[in-house]
Amino acid sequence: MTQHAITLDVDGERYELAVEARRLLSDVLRDLGRTGVHVGCEHGVCGACTVQVDGAPMRACLLFAVQLEGQAIRTVAALGDNGGLDGLQQAFHDVHGLQCGFCTPGLLMTLDALLRERAELDEATIREVVSGHLCRCTGYDNIVEAVQLALRRRAKAA
């Protein structure tokens, strides 16, 4: 199979790679050590592999790595605050917003993008955004609460 030479920008690092065209971004990111990109369904439904491409959340399993030359890809490895938890992650921790943790990085990437766009969110909107991700453990209540807590803390700090 033909290998394509590409340059990927992942979490602010540049990678020169040779990849087969058919290799999914989710697999290539994992090969680059971004194992927080979880593969859950490979048809775009579960959301576990969600990453940010130029700031927008997207399913990494529905992109070919070869498509993304020059675009900024951000994975869960880029979140956090100096090796510790950032506000959203801390809120997930504090209100038990995760159990097995497999869906969590994908959710964080979508919700991180959401919190960058919006300062206030009502519960219905949060639920709507969370509904693009499947979680089999939590029943979602604590995930929704985590987002609300992160928003409240951010508003207080501002």
Binding site: G36, V76, H93, G101, T104, P105
Partner: peptide, 12 residues
Amino acid sequence: EDRRFLLGQGRY
């Protein structure tokens, strides 16, 4: 166990 999962450092 949360910390490693939240940082994408789980080992599945």
